[in-house]
Design a protein around this nucleic acid. Sequence first.
RNA 1: CGGGGUGUGGCGCAGUUGGCUAGCGCGCCGCGUUUGGGACGCGGAGGCCGGAGGUUCGAGUCCUCUCACCCCGACCA
Length: 419
Amino acid sequence: MRLSQLFTKTSKTVPADETAKNAQLLIKAGYIHKEMAGVYAYLPLGLRVLENIKQIVREEMNALGGQELIMTNLQRRELWEITDRWDDAKVDIWFKTQLKNGTDVGLAWSHEEPITAMMKNYIASYRDLPANVYQFQTKLRNELRAKSGIMRGREFVMKDLYSYSRSDEEHQKFYDSVTQAYLNVFHRVGLGDITFVTYASGGAFTQFSHEFQTITDAGEDVIYLDRDKKLAVNQEVYNDEILAQLGLDKNKLEETKAAEVGNIFSFGTAKSEQLNLYFTDEDGKDKPVVLGSYGIGVTRLMGVVAEHFSDDKGLVWPENIAPAKVYLARLGDGAETVKQADELYELLTENQVQVLYDDRDTRPGEKFADADLLGIPYRVVVSEKTVSVGACELKARTAAEPKQVSQEELFKTLGITSQ
RNA sequence: CGGGGUGUGGCGCAGUUGGCUAGCGCGCCGCGUUUGGGACGCGGAGGCCGGAGGUUCGAGUCCUCUCACCCCGACCA
């Protein structure tokens, strides 16, 4: 992509009404736009990051045998009344509206009920199970107070996965595999070292749920972490009894702030029974389906990454999710410089390397500052200087100084094998 | 929803005890000089001061109501 054609711009200042670091950086760099409190638009570069994260999640979900679908955002009142979650006293973050004929509808804050009700159409026999379905969906939650930029919005994107199993054993096996898949996701987006499986409140169905907590000051949770065991306990369930049960030594635990980037639940059969989701076993007996629910807040995850991978100059995207791998800065507009920069842009693009080509008529300092602010992993410079020596200049976003490299070395660094 | 704070060109801000054509920086447009870490000069465009009432000869400034936004708390993926 040529920056001269990108409609977004970077900014030297941040809006005064935005204090969350993730939102400040993302707005400054032109990745997102704030529409209202807790509601953000994803601009072209921000969308790329979001899609890159989604793709990683998608690959891990598909590897589990998850099947992607997309539910609706308008939901039926009757469905939520069955499980007693329509009442504002029970769920206080509902957005609700009405059809022209007066029928109440809810705007999706979760999809457990509708998706489970829908599965009744497809699950009748033990032969239909297990079934694991997931989606990337916009969730709408009427939070009393939005905060922390894209880490807690009123509208956000979540990957939600639902598992339907024949037995507790079958469910548990899948549940454990999801745990591993989630760890893979957080590892791949660069947060592996600071994200921990955390015991949290399990709600009405089980003693615990498992959260995936990423250590960050911007987080809203407090966890007690055993680094050796790579396990943590959320403050909400933290007590001596629980620690004993989990075999954790209180003296070894580290208290830290963290952000919940994922949460997985076992529902047992309670919800299936409520919603009448049964299957016929080999023996001809009807049994309720065992249900699990697994979420990753995708936009929140992007916020946590932005929050964590940044310095005083701006964002520092991990390569896996960066909106481009290379920031190609062309300095000067001499004929040969333009020619060589254009050619390098074409060549990299042909080799499947995503490039932000800064072909704008601006001064070098501005280009360097933008390259840093945007947080692109590699900066490549083509200028009169590099043209004259027949090399180009390469600097990793995290490196202090650039170095001169041949095109061969450049390609090698960027992982391009053939030429 | 309780407490605190803020609303003035796209962004960041100033505006005195009410007083004259509402300023400054960034950004934007034009011309010129520049060109390896956000250049400089000259000339421009752009604002009924969040909104509605009110007080006053006169309101960005005072009063009332209202809307929005931010922070702390409670709540929460």
